[in-house]
Amino acid sequence: MSGDSTANLVRMVNQIARNVTHEADPVATVADHVAAFWSGRMRAQIATWLDQHGGEGLDPVALAALQRLQQGADAG
């Protein structure tokens, strides 16, 4: 199920991406942050969003990070 709150998650991940632009590897930083602090349901919600909407509304760094996380999840 993916309710209204997915829009909030998009906003949250974009905000994270905007705040870590000076890290050595911003994509990895965003991915690690989401893995460390988001619950399984939140990650599932945003993954569904990726499937259904692609990168729509997502900052490029945030998008890359989420894709990396998803590959990790699929692989593992």
Binding site: M1, G3, D4, S5, N8
Partner: peptide
């Protein structure tokens, strides 16, 4: 907390 509230309005 905010995510619990989101999840509540989402019905889960």
């Amino acid at each position: 907390i905010p995510n619990m509230l989101d999840a509540a309005t989402d019905g889960v």
